[in-house]
Design a protein around this nucleic acid. Structure first.
Length: 490
RNA sequence: GGGCCUCUAGCUCAAUUGGCAGAGCAGUUGACUCUUAAUCAAUCGGUUGUGGGUUCGAGUCCCACGGGGCCCA
């Protein structure tokens, strides 16, 4: 990699340090306090004139005058100003600070805490040391790093410069740890199931395919954890969950990334009503853990997480927004006629299920800003969910929507092996008819169901979207540390 | 996959009708013992995403390709 002028200048300074016998990358530092700890105990440390050693990255500009200099350092726990004078640290180190150290360099400073004339809490430095010389220059001092592409390609730089962005990922960790705590407290067992699967299933999506050399067979990156977790319910665990990456071979947009983080949990002897209650309680706790309140703002609009959330049947929701009652149009021709009657766009290529999904996505979903459960989905859209007793065309399924996004998906799990096999066959027919997202036949899963799975409630929550909502971010890219970007070729 | 927008110095951005590629920040040199967008003076820095084309002349117009963004499917 060639160095540009600014990089070459810094590399030359690095060599000057070496020539003076200073290791520009020493193996360790000898700090006595984090900056955060020093600031927290500032008054006591200052009063006692305790000599402390801090370490951190020089941020912002160094302000070097003739015989004194100022700079701020930052270590992830806080920021503090350094006060340096030629008299205190000597000509050699004062000039070294001026001539060989730069913004972004990581240094160690020893001295005492005191306020400057303007009252700023500062470390009055007696000794300096280099911890890591930097080669790359900082972006613009005030505008910072704006370019979205560069922010994502060089997330490390984004995090250095736009330090408040670290809070998004701190919130993300808080969300996941709170979710884990809620599930643990309710007796769910955290498990790990295969990422590499001989057969993909559990969701409607196209998979990534890879090849296992030793086995000589294709394997798929999982699109969901569902079918493995339900095998564990068959195996006798009363409740299991997994938090991990799923992979779906699809495009990237504001709410989709090809790899994303999902939590799935399954509870034996429970149903989808129990899962709705779990979602309400869990998100209430998570929102409170992150914000200390259950009322938050997303993109300028207020969101209220406190339970209970509205429950709205999918057919009613569609009827309300379009005037079309899908329960009165159980076949494609009749549904198309009803859509045409309303002057709405008919999708001639779509199956009945797909057409219903389009009506819902276009006319209902954008209105679901407040946390809402849409319940009772058509069986044709829900090949893994149990039918509603007495209404065999609909299933005990819900999806949770927040800010117009699908955040969660849950059912009373289908545990009838014969019905499940028939549902898979229906999916195979859809696949043969061109639906590339249709489910595959999983005979081993059928076999598991033949050993008996108790009535079970299952739930999946898309973590990335939940983080978006709880950190007020408009795109999924901003809540994923290293979002997928095309390789650059010049 | 389609439409629109965008790519200029390390970074943030200008450049009128097609007419000398510029500024701020950072950097460099000098002055300066309480600054904090430090100040003052001087100064370095460009294959305008890539490749073609039109033209006396292209950052600007045309074509292709690449990256990114927004919207749609």
């Amino acid at each position: 990699m060639e160095l540009n002028d600014l990089q070459a200048q810094r590399a030359a300074k690095l060599e000057q340090l070496r020539a003076a016998g200073i290791d520009p990358f020493p193996p360790r530092c000898y700090r006595s306090h984090t900056i955060g700890a020093a600031l927290a105990a500032f008054d006591e440390l200052a009063a006692a004139e305790t000599v402390i050693t801090l370490a951190g990255r020089i941020i912002g500009a160094r302000r070097v005058m003739g015989k004194i200099a100022f700079a701020h350092i930052e270590d992830g726990s806080g920021e503090i100003q350094l006060w340096l004078s030629r008299a205190d640290i000597g000509d050699e180190w004062f000039e070294r600070f001026r001539d060989q150290l730069d913004t972004f360099d990581i240094i160690q400073a020893t001295g005492t805490l005191r306020r400057t004339k303007t009252g700023e809490r500062s470390l009055f430095v007696r000794e300096l040391a280099v911890l890591a010389k930097t080669i790359n220059p900082p972006p613009e001092k005030w505008a910072g790093l704006q370019d979205v592409e560069e922010r994502h390609r060089q997330r490390y730089l984004d995090l250095i410069v736009n330090r408040e962005r670290r809070d998004i990922f701190r919130a993300r960790a808080c969300i996941i740890s709170t979710m884990r705590r809620v599930l643990d407290e309710r007796g769910f067992l955290e498990v790990e199931t295969p990422v590499l699967q001989p057969l993909y299933g559990g969701a409607a999506a196209r998979p990534f395919v890879t090849y296992h050399n030793a086995l000589g067979q294709n394997l798929y990156l999982r699109i969901a954890t569902e079918l493995y977790l339900k095998r564990l319910i068959v195996g006798g665990f009363p409740g299991v969950y997994e938090i991990g990456k799923n992979f779906r071979n699809e495009g990237v947009d504001r709410s989709h990334n090809p790899e994303f983080t999902m939590m799935e949990c399954y509870q034996a002897y429970a149903d989808y009503h129990a899962m709705m209650a779990l979602v309400e309680e869990m998100l209430d706790e998570i929102c409170y853990a992150v914000h200390g309140t259950t009322t938050i703002t997303y993109q300028g609009r207020e969101l209220e997480f406190r339970p209970p959330w509205p429950r709205l049947a999918m057919a009613d929701a569609i009827a309300e927004r379009t005037g079309i009652d899908i329960t009165q149009h159980p076949d494609l021709a009749s549904l198309h006629a009803a859509i045409a009657d309303r002057g709405l766009r008919v999708d001639r290529k779509a199956s009945w299920a797909k057409q219903v999904d389009e009506l819902f996505s276009e006319f209902v979903q954008p209105h679901l800003f407040q946390p809402t459960f849409i319940i009772d989905y058509p069986v044709a859209m829900s090949p893994l969910a149990k039918r509603i007793p007495g209404r065999p065309d609909f299933t005990e399924r819900f999806e949770a929507f927040i800010a117009g996004m699908e955040i969660g998906n849950a059912f009373t799990e289908l545990n009838d092996p014969f019905d499940q096999e028939e549902r898979f066959r229906e999916q195979l027919r859809a696949f043969a008819a061109g639906d590339e997202e249709a489910h595959q036949m999983d005979e081993d899963f059928i076999n598991a169901l033949r050993y008996g799975m108790p009535p079970t409630g299952g739930l999946g929550i898309g973590i990335d979207r939940l983080v978006m909502v709880l950190t007020d971010q408009p795109t999924i890219r901003e809540v994923i540390l290293f979002p997928h970007l095309r390789e650059r070729s010049d």
